[in-house]
Design a protein around this nucleic acid. Structure first.
Lengths: 343, 343
DNA sequence: TTGAAAGCGCTAACAA
DNA sequence: TTGTTAGCGCTTTCAA
């Protein structure tokens, strides 16, 4: 009594049907030489007839390589990541590898579990996108297999390559844009103390200084001295409440959205009464009204670059590589010259 | 000359170190009985020392089952899907399976390729979320392995289970909500001719009839008679241009967003001058202003249910199951009673 | 040009 | 309680 579901045909079934040995089938299937065209054609036909489908697991086992690459997102629901993923996948496909996609639900612990899972499946390389993997775990990965981190790290980890956008340049372009429009009281809303946000915060202050506006710079940050985080909307309200402030540079689009809301609630008209620049050029920036001026990271490029660096590692590179890519400012409707002052 | 990267330790290495046979290690690792506690402890320690990590590929090969489940999204960048995925993953984890996530980039062809890839990895089941897999391919899948489709199908496919929300009920609740607010001229903006959108369109018309408003119903659809699709913004403009229309039910949140924009552009104030209801309760509905009233599908439940149905199939169920879940209306700020008419 | 045989890392009989 | 053995489906020597 065999089960109802037909067993999946193996290479042996094809061999039997074609009247050859299983190694002949293996050769034929992968287009290797050392087999006559006639036999190959016959074998291919038989395989087709049987609906034969190679067993990648078996192949990976015997070849000692899986041609699998793991991609771990911090958070699947973050639309910021999807273009990066597409880039990685394109690159991986080009090098004959298959990407396995997972996500850590924003939780470092779950992220580590996902990574474990991928290692169990014998992935040959790992790309971590924005994932908050603990440094010790990252170090272990760097020793174990090619590992690329897309996103800013607090400090380099040996054996781990990184790809990030130039947060300093991005922040600078945002502030310069606002200053060029005539804004002097440009405030900053900072959403976190993670490396990328901190870089932007520092660059904001430095740029304000460079422009001779250092004494007008003011940072509204969520992080409190006691280590807790203030509500983002509350921070936005604070920033908007200052009547001198005519423009805000926010450390990401989510924070910018909070500022837009707070401004509306406070009766400040946008962008005349208050200009806002975000960071990430996420879908949010196209959905909100006014449409958000935002700093764009070259996401597709970051993805293909990740795949490329992975390929290099697999080809034998052992030195670490840290790539920083230039962002570009996308100007939309949320920034304009400051309205004439009614004193 | 061995390569620099240390070979990953196998069960044999552990056995050698512990001075036992490899089957003893296998037993110890999986907590099977038939081995003394002392030996087990020793083996576990050795495995730990060596940094041993089981090879799932080898295990899958010998056990004849992979404990892998494939999840295929139509589009990774569609935030609508992510909660469903979380549900599927939770369910799969509970049944001891691992989910492999992929996406088809909205392209049926690419989707089929992804499915092929998953089959090559010996997944034991497949969950397709909103994916547009051609019917013939779907039929083949239904014959080959447990397959669950989350989303509405044009017609049932033998061997394929489905999970969908009740589009009729959702459309009805949207129209009833608007009618209860006092709207009579409720128009519908329909974004496509896909099964879900068509169901909502039909239910809209039926509900308007039921309410005695049949003669005031008007459908603004993208689909033209010649089979082409009109620009969504253009359709929204048309809908908003009709001065009698005081409310719009859109077939999804993206369409609703287009209506909101068109309304603003036409100088109609929201929601007093025009009320709008969307469908999907996507992140869009929380980002736009006014916040969008929208029909919510029970996504987490859809996900866990998918995993559950998969488990049933794997346990031997051979009858098809089609589940339809009730949606709920989430009322936000985009709907209000019609403003008093200035005649 | 083809077939036979070994073995990838593991589990699951079975024998000791 | 332990060790031995035979494969899972495939690739890859090596002979024929």
């Amino acid at each position: 009594m065999t089960p109802a579901a037909a067993r999946r045909p193996t290479i042996l079934d094809v061999a039997a049907r074609a009247g050859v040995s299983k190694s002949a089938v293996s050769l034929a299937l992968r287009g290797s030489p050392g087999i006559s065209d006639a036999t190959r054609a016959r074998i291919l036909t038989c395989a087709e007839d049987l609906g034969y489908r190679g067993n990648r697991l078996a192949r990976a086992l015997v070849e000692g390589r899986s041609a699998l690459v793991g991609v771990v997102l911090n958070d699947l629901s973050n639309p910021y990541h999807t273009e990066i993923v597409a880039g990685i996948e394109d690159g991986a496909t080009a090098m004959g590898a298959t990407t396995l996609l997972t996500h850590g639900q924003r939780d470092p612990h779950r992220t580590v579990l996902q990574v474990e899972m991928l290692l169990g499946l014998n992935v040959e390389g790992l790309v971590l996108v924005g994932s908050r993997v603990p440094v010790d775990a990252l170090e272990r990965l760097g020793r174990t297999l090619p590992t690329i981190v897309v996103g800013r790290l607090e400090a380099p980890v040996p054996g781990v390559d990184t790809i990030a956008n130039d947060d300093e340049a991005g922040a600078r372009s945002a502030v310069h844009h606002l200053a060029a429009l005539g804004h002097e009281h440009v405030a900053h809303v900072s959403s976190s103390t993670r490396p990328a946000a901190l870089s932007r915060r520092r660059a904001y202050l430095a740029t304000m200084d460079d422009l001779g506006l250092g004494d007008r710079a003011v940072v509204h940050a969520r992080d409190r001295l006691d280590g807790t985080e203030e509500d983002l909307d509350e921070v936005a309200r604070r920033a908007v409440a200052d009547p001198r402030t005519t423009a805000v540079f926010a450390s990401n689009d989510v924070a910018a959205l909070a500022v837009l809301d707070a401004a509306s609630a406070a009766g400040r008209s946008l962008p005349g009464d208050l200009s806002v620049v975000g960071y990430d050029n996420s879908t949010i920036s196209r959905i909100v009204r006014p449409r958000l001026t935002s700093v764009d990271q070259p996401r597709p490029l970051m993805g293909t670059l990740a795949a490329e660096m992975l390929a290099e590692r697999l080809a034998g590179r052992t030195t670490d590589r840290h790539e920083v890519l230039p962002p570009t400012l996308v100007v939309r409707d949320s920034t304009a010259p400051p309205a004439a002052r009614v004193v």
